[in-house]
Nucleic acid binder design. Structure first.
Lengths: 235, 235
DNA sequence: GGAGGAGTGTACAATACAGAACAGTTTTTC
DNA sequence: GAAAAACTGTTCTGTATTGTACACTCCTCC
C-alpha cells in the first residue's frame, strides 16, 4: 500500500550521523504499523520518560524532540550516555531480555515519544523490511558512536574530550557554517557527558574562550569556532 | 527445510552474556545461506584478520575461536575495544556505510572466520528471520556491553576497572566455579583493555595477589577468586 | 649456548584530576 | 520584589595516574 522502495535500501548507506533533525526514512510505513499498538506520549523539557530501575518492556521511538540517556552510579555520580534526536530508538535493552531500565531517559526539548511493546516490536522487525532496516541502522550507528565515546575516554584527556563533545553538540545546529550554535546546556551537564567535574569544565571553557575557540558572554547558548577547536583534538 | 522454530525466538530472551563458547543458535540455516557467498578463513593465534584503515565491505562471523578488536590512536597508544567469541559478528560497520575498518581484528586463539559480503548480508537479513534475529540480538548485547564499558570508564578508578575486566575475562572459563581460569593475556594487553599503563596493571595485580584475590606464580594463566575480587567492585 | 625478545617487578618525578569550598550572577518561584 | 534556586567563576589541597626508566626472569631461535 504505502510506497516502500525509498526505504528498502536505507540500511545500506545512511551516513547516519549527518545533520538529522527529522527522521530520514519513510515514517509512514513504520507508524502505520506501530501505531496499531497505540501509545504516543508528549513530554516537556526536563520531563522524565523513564527512570533507572523502572520495569519496562517497551521500545521507544522519538517522533520529534530530543532525549538524554543518563546513568546514576551507586555513589550518586551521574553520567550522560547519549543525546538522541528525532528518528532514534531507545530502551531497546528489553529486546535483549533486560527487565529493568539500566538508566534514565529525560526529554531535553518538548518531545513526542512512541511506545512500542516488546512483543509487537519483534513482530514488526520480522514483518516489515523498512522497520528492521531502520532499527538495524540505528543500532549500527549507535554502536559506532558509543564505541567512539569509549575510545575517546581511553585515549584522551578531559580537555580533549570536552572539545570533542562541544564539536559533536554543535552538529545539532546548522551544518556547513564555520561557527555553529550549541543548544543550552549547563556546565554541570557537560561535565556529566565528558566524565569529569564541573569545575574542570569551567576551567577549560574559559581557556577555550580566552584562546578564541568559543564565544559566549557568560551566557549559553554559545558559539563554537569549528576549525579552531579542532586544533585541540589534533595535537 | 531446516528446523527453524528453535531459533525463531532467539531475539526475545537470550541471556546473551552467559557461558558461550559455541554459537547458541541453529547454525545450519545461517551457514547454508551464507556459505553460498563462500569464504571461510582460518587463522592462528595472533594472526591479523584485518587492520585499521583497510578497505572492507564484508561482515565477519566467528565460527570458532576468539577475536580481539583494537584501535590505535594517532599517538601510538592501543586500546582493546572488545574480545569476541564463537557466534559473534564483527566488522558490521560497513553496513552503516563505513568504507574502511575503524580498528584492527586479531585472532586470540586458532579461529575459523566466515566472510559475508555486505550486499549478501543485507539480503540475508531480509530473507532469513533466524539470521536477522541472531544479528539484532548480537548488536543489542554488544551495545549493552560497550555501554557498560563506557560507564565503567566514567565512574570507576583504574583499580576497579581492572577487577571488573578480570571478572569478565574469567567468564571464558568454566561457569559456576568459585575459582575460574583466565586465558593467557599479558599485562600489556590488560592495560589496553582497562585503559591504563602496564606498570599500573602490574601494581594492582600484585596488590590483588597479596590480598588473595587472585592466584598465580608469576605465570599466566592465572586463577581468580571470584567472590573475593567482587569486593573491590562493590566498595 | 648465547643473543635477543617478551614479559614482569619496582621506583620516582611530573602532572592531571577530584573534591570541596565560597563569592558573584542570573533566573525562578511565590 | 524578596527569597530561593541554579549556574558560573575561581581557588586550593591531596591524591590518582601517567610516563619513564631499569633490573630481572624466562623463552626461543639461530
Amino acid at each position: 500500500m504505502q510506497p516502500r522502495k525509498a526505504t528498502a535500501l536505507a540500511l545500506v548507506g545512511p551516513s547516519a550521523r549527518g545533520a538529522r533533525t527529522e527522521p530520514v526514512f519513510n515514517v509512514q510505513a513504520f507508524l502505520d504499523a506501530a501505531l496499531t499498538s497505540k501509545t504516543v506520549m508528549r513530554y516537556a523539557r526536563n520531563d522524565v520518560v523513564f527512570s533507572q530501575g523502572d520495569p519496562g518492556d517497551h521500545v521507544l521511538y522519538i517522533q520529534s524532540g530530543g532525549v538524554k540517556l543518563s546513568v546514576l552510579s551507586k555513589t550518586g555520580k551521574e553520567a550522560v550516555v547519549a543525546m538522541l534526536a528525532a528518528g532514534d530508538f531507545f530502551g531497546e535493552g528489553c529486546l535483549a531480555g533486560q527487565k529493568f531500565r539500566m538508566g534514565s531517559a529525560t526529554a531535553i526539548t518538548p518531545s513526542a515519544i512512541l511506545f512500542v511493546e516488546k512483543a509487537h516490536m519483534v513482530k514488526l522487525l520480522h514483518k516489515q523490511h523498512a522497520m528492521s532496516d531502520r532499527f538495524i541502522s540505528h543500532m549500527l550507528s549507535r554502536n559506532i558512536r558509543i564505541e567512539e565515546d569509549l575510545i575517546d575516554q581511553l585515549f584522551n584527556s578531559a580537555e580533549k574530550r570536552l572539545a570533542r563533545t562541544l564539536l559533536l553538540l554543535a552538529r545539532y545546529g546548522n551544518q556547513d557554517k564555520p561557527v555553529r550554535a550549541v543548544p543550552p546546556i549547563s556546565q554541570e551537564t557537560l561535565a556529566e557527558m565528558v566524565g569529569t567535574t564541573r569545575s574542570r569544565v569551567n576551567f577549560f571553557m574559559n581557556k577555550f574562550k580566552r584562546l578564541g575557540f568559543i564565544e559566549y558572554d557568560g551566557d549559553l547558548p554559545l558559539k563554537i569556532n569549528n576549525s579552531l577547536l579542532s586544533v585541540v583534538l589534533h595535537d
